[in-house]
Design a protein around this nucleic acid. Structure first.
Lengths: 292, 292, 292
DNA sequence: ATAGGTTTTGTCAAGCTTTTGTACAT
DNA sequence: ATGTACAAAAGCTTGACAAAACCTAT
């Protein structure tokens, strides 16, 4: 990446986004770095050190404690030219393939991704971030609606086919649906896949589900939870009355950006505003209620 | 499916649909079950016990006295059901499964169907007729929107996963999309699959594709044909101008019920009003041109 | 993606969706987990522990009581809720199923595989390697002929049903056959499927095709290529004369191990000695000629 | 089916320790 | 630059509690 020059602690900190004080603490406590010293005693770091600090940070972001993160970062120092499959690589491959309307290439990238990692990692590290980025590029006008359509159709198909049979089993059931008019179902599908890995059964209604019939189905299936997804606030606002009625008879949760809307907890509904994978874990733990 | 874990009396009752009290009575009176006990004395059952309870119930439903039923259930295990295989049977199985929101059963029926026949036969003999019937039942109010949603979501997933990779190859390309606002894409997918089986490449845009971007993509990909699907007449009418512009630059075809609309052939567009499988064969035979 | 770092209780809880308090209770009461401790006494967990907690949760969701769920989770670390999809896992599942003559399990594994990945990936990453391994195990006497027969019959049937209708279309045609006496057709079928996905039409003759009829058919169909598969050298040698005649009138390719034989390119035949999927891509790209 | 007692299990609190980022003094 | 200090966050242990689910006997 960079030349062989030696960095001082300030510069290293700036590049890694870590305060000098913290770098010294990491050195003292975990021996993460072993900088050489200048004539006057100043710490001098190499590019490897920078690499190690970045690795450490990645582990921290993964939720590891500092001590464990440091141990890992020390142990796996080299890791030269990552084994060809970092999340960033897959994301780049996806972007290129979709931008060129090249379905086979996209499918191949997804194949590689799913073969190399857990479904949940694939979702929260690659697929969901990619979709978020795609949405942002679309808002900035960098991507046509057609490209966005094309990409999400393929991703949706892949995810749904991973969910095939998710209604099977004997665990509690979750009823998943999008609000009327809502088209964005990918987050909801991801949530369903993650929840399934906790042993739940999924009854999935795609996008644009009318609320009366959702209510009727909920009465029929009596699920442990009804999860409704919405991206835009208006959809929720205009459905508040119906949602309240639904929440009175069933455990209700709201997913998607609209979960942050004001009136939601007055509804008595659970807010699922975060990462679908994490939220699924939370629901699995919280809603222990024995279905039926 | 379920592991051989030990069930407590509540769960056994829930699974068998028998109250705990009754289970205890059956144990006391007929010795139907001999559960082991937990440290603290709670009854623990196995899956075999569940089987025995279900058998007992079947015998009760047959009219046997409880004592006889229990004696039989203690002695003999149960026999599993054997699935049937004619198209009519599959359709019936699909109907039942979807009506009960039973995804696994529906998937199993689709599995059997696709294993037993050609994709095209499956489409035109079973799947498309089933969907047509479902639509009619919905119009007659015999089926809720939820059921229709549930069924078409599953069928759509199955069909799309069959089409995975249909963008590959060297044959002529067809660009497939639904008009803005249009949600019914199953016919279009069926058409795509059928056309694919004639060696064509498919570029697929899901439902609700804006026409400007469709046009832009068409210019980019330069497909041998652009197929646009619409069920309702209004969608077509309100898009006539754009469609005309599209038809001027590309071979255009209109699918779905709206293909029968008046203004269509004045557009210079092909009408694909019939069975998607048959129409695909026609297109494959007719539009021989432009094989890149 | 996530490295095998050690998790503290908070992070484990976050990932599994279980509160730290409950995790401690499960450890105390059922010995579900046996974390190592940090210097200062903090619990440190591995990824296996996470797996065990998820398994426990799955059993809980199934309605088992905590004690029983824990006992099961402690005993059986295997069988994750989302059947894992890495090639190695699917291969292991296939191996187990076939070794036990368990056809339903094998079909289920193939279902999952085909639902989760592209046909071509499934072929070159799982199915073909599995078959190769099976052959090797057979040579080492680790597998009976019966097992080898059982497995390849099921796989062949499955692949052939995927190829149903592959003779249709307008792309270039490939004529596929095994040499007289040759029984191994799985590689040839895989090649046909892969080539099909490039839009080609396949005319398929199973194993043991007499050369005169092959030649006659070739003259009649005038395919873009004739692909002949052979595993053993002698088969090729004893057919050299006929093959030479065939190669004089048609584009000829030789697949299977025998492709490496000496006299082959003297024949003017293409050698397809590698992975069928890759070779199909090569043929599709090379023999562009004669399209139609 | 009810009554009265027991087991199981998730949660919580109190009091104390470890871990870790940052700040301060030399 | 170094070393020490500090406080917030996260953990640990013990003990207890209450709701749900079960048990037996009537």
């Amino acid at each position: 990446m960079t030349e062989i020059g030696l960095l001082r602690i300030g510069e290293l900190g700036r590049r890694a986004g870590v305060s000098p004080g913290l770098l010294r603490a990491w050195e003292r406590r975990y021996g993460l770095l072993r900088p050489t010293r200048s004539q006057g005693g100043l710490r001098l770091y190499t590019d490897d050190d920078l690499e190690r600090v970045l690795t450490m940070q990645r582990h921290l972001a993964d939720g590891l404690a500092a001590a464990e993160a440091a141990a890992l970062a020390k142990r796996a120092p080299a890791e030269p030219a990552t084994p060809s499959l970092t999340p960033a690589d897959v994301r780049r491959a996806l972007t290129e393939a979709f931008d060129a309307f090249d379905e086979p290439a996209a499918q191949a990238a997804l194949d590689r991704l799913l073969a190399a990692t857990t479904l949940e990692t694939a979702l929260s590290e690659v697929i969901l971030p990619y979709l978020r980025e795609l949405g942002e590029r679309w808002e900035r006008g960098e991507v046509s609606v057609a490209q966005e359509h094309f990409a999400s159709a393929i991703v949706r198909e892949r995810l749904l086919s991973l969910g095939r049979g998710w209604g099977r089993g004997s665990g509690p059931t979750a009823l998943l649906a999008c609000l009327p008019g809502e088209r964005h179902e990918l987050g909801l599908i991801a949530f369903g896949l993650a929840l399934r890995s906790h042993g739940w059964r999924i009854a999935y209604f795609g996008s644009d589900t009318p609320l009366e019939t959702l209510a009727a189905t909920a009465d029929f299936l009596d699920p442990a939870i009804v999860v409704v997804s919405a991206v835009s606030d208006e959809r929720v606002s205009s459905a508040l009355a119906d949602l309240r009625a639904l929440a009175a008879r069933h455990r209700l949760a709201l997913g998607g950006k609209a979960a942050h809307l004001a009136g939601v907890d007055e509804l008595g509904a659970l807010r699922l505003g975060g990462d679908p994978v994490a939220e699924a874990a939370r629901v699995a733990a919280t809603v222990t209620s024995y279905a039926r």
